[in-house]
Design a protein around this nucleic acid. Structure first.
Length: 459
RNA sequence: GGCGGCAUAGCCAAGAGGUAAGGCAGAGGACUGCAAAUCCUUUAUUCCCCGGUUCGAAUCCGGGUGCCGCCUCCA
């Protein structure tokens, strides 16, 4: 039985899809810069969710948006469009920036072994749907006009804020951001913003030329592809109070229904015990990870060592230790030979952990228990690990089964002769030579063994 | 000012009121020409501190202390 924590109810609930497929919406990137390891953690969490559902035999329809327009750098009009900031920085057009970073994002998730969504939805290709949705809200009386744009009046929706459970009364409006005088309620948010002629990205609308507000794209896109009520909506915890709260408001206003039954949120990644951010200078990207000699999948493994709803503290030391762990696992699998039939007890344990709200740390503990189990034959271990890896995505299917190339065999032969002749200098030289060609020589009590070195497995 | 979370070995972390998962690192041993790998063994009498509830608490309650986050865009 699949059980997931639902932010809407703050409880772990039994999960079953409404239809013959699971419909999922996952908030995607704003493509004005490279994704950092905090972003990436959330996408890996979502990937584990998707893989588990697939493993359980469900068909999936998953949509991810690409925000290639519109989000301002601040909540009020003083800010600039992030895409445009990126464009100025790199002296490119907003469209070039969006295209470049969309590609970079797709490259990143591929390297992390993250499955692609079924639908990629660019915000700029759904302006029409957004306008339609705003018109519905307008007809139902949820909107009003200010000099800056069309706003959503949260006081018209009695259950506004049910997801975040924030007490609006207790908050001090404007403590961090100035509240526009024209807004009726401090938490009212823009659906459509009017653009000055110099604003590069703008479109026609019934209210004049402008660009969409910050939350409308997800509502319009999810509704278009997944319907009024779908199964799961995912994102980072930071989206709970504002973005997802407003997504719900927009669709609840338009359809009368909360758009998703389950809302699942990935916790933040900390760096060296503290906040990660661009201004802190520690918002590492996958590029940084690779530059320091780490494999993308080591990062993936690292993410899996903590529960997705717990903060995880990134340190280079920890990444190093789990890269070693992953290499060890690869090394184990590489010696296992052909898969053999095995009973299902380990599989049951593994699934038990995964099905209870995606407990990857415990699932990994099952993996290591199995690896160390002297009762199991190697082929059985291979069968189990390859099976589990459909969910974990640690690249195990690429490991092992390689034929030892003839040239390596020849070198080994030569080395053995040298060793017999006690010519250890030559033997060591040959061992180095073999290593350079990607194989590690091990002299065990049972004889000489070579293992392939998986240095560049994901490159 | 309001709301919330966390505190478990050197590091990253699981922990279901019933006697501390897992990985890395460390220590000892086996094996070895060396190296690596591997295999065994070992590493928290105790879970930030102080009280309380209970036969029993890392887990529940109260009070401290420290750290982190949200109330702006942010995964």
């Amino acid at each position: 039985m699949l059980r997931f924590y639902n932010t809407l109810t703050r409880q772990i609930e039994n999960f079953a899809p409404q239809r013959d497929e699971v419909r999922i919406y996952t908030c995607g990137p704003t493509v004005y810069d490279y994704a950092h390891i905090g972003n990436l953690r959330t996408y890996v969490f979502e990937d584990i969710l998707i893989r588990l559902l697939k493993y359980k035999g469900y068909k999936i329809k998953r949509v991810m948006n690409i925000t290639d327009v519109g989000h301002l750098t601040s909540n009020e009009d003083i800010g600039e469009d992030k895409i445009i900031v990126g464009a100025k920085r790199e002296k490119k057009t907003p469209w070039e920036i969006a295209e470049y970073y969309t590609k970079a994002f797709k490259d990143d998730i591929k390297e992390l072994n993250i499955l692609e969504p079924d639908v990629w939805a660019k915000a700029t290709e759904h302006i029409k749907e957004m306008i339609e949705l705003i018109r519905i809200l307008e007809k139902k009386g949820f909107t009003y006009r200010t000099s800056e744009g069309i706003y959503f009046d949260i006081s018209k929706l009695s259950r506004y804020g049910r997801l975040s459970r924030l007490k609006l009364e207790g908050q001090i409006p404007g403590i961090r951001v100035k509240v526009s005088r024209e807004k009726r309620n401090p938490s009212d948010f823009a659906l459509w913003k009017f653009a000055s002629p110099s604003h590069i990205m703008q479109w026609d609308s019934p209210w004049g030329r402008g660009f969409p507000g910050w939350h409308i794209e997800c509502s319009a896109i999810s509704r278009k592809y997944l319907g009024d009520v779908f199964d799961i909506h995912c994102g980072g915890v930071d989206h709970i109070p504002v973005h997802h709260t407003n997504e719900i408001a927009q669709l609840e206003g338009a359809t009368g229904k909360v758009p998703a039954r389950f809302w699942m949120h990935g916790e933040f990644l900390l760096v060296e015990g503290g906040r990660m951010g661009k201004s802190e200078g520690n918002a590492w990207t996958l590029r940084d990870i690779k530059k320091r000699g780490f494999k993308p999948l080591a990062l993936r493994y690292f993410y899996l060592t903590a529960h997705y709803r717990a903060k995880l503290n990134f340190t280079w030391k920890a990444l190093e230790s789990f890269q070693r762990t992953l290499e060890k696992l690869w090394g184990e699998v590489s010696t296992y030979g052909e898969p053999e039939a095995v009973d299902s007890s380990y599989k049951e344990k593994f699934l038990q952990e995964m099905e209870e709200d995606l407990n990857t740390p415990r699932a990994l503990a099952v993996v290591w228990k199995l690896v160390r189990d002297s009762q199991l034959r190697d082929g059985q271990k291979r069968t189990l690990l390859l099976d589990f890896d459909k969910v974990l995505g640690l690249g195990l299917e690429k490991i092992g089964g390689e034929e030892i190339p003839q040239e390596i065999r020849n070198l080994l032969e030569e080395r053995n002769k040298a060793r017999e002749a006690k010519d250890f200098f030559k033997a060591d030289t040959l061992r180095e030579e073999i290593k350079k060609r990607g194989w590690r020589v091990e002299d065990t009590p049972e004889g000489v063994r070579v293992k392939k070195i998986y240095k560049d497995i994901e490159e």
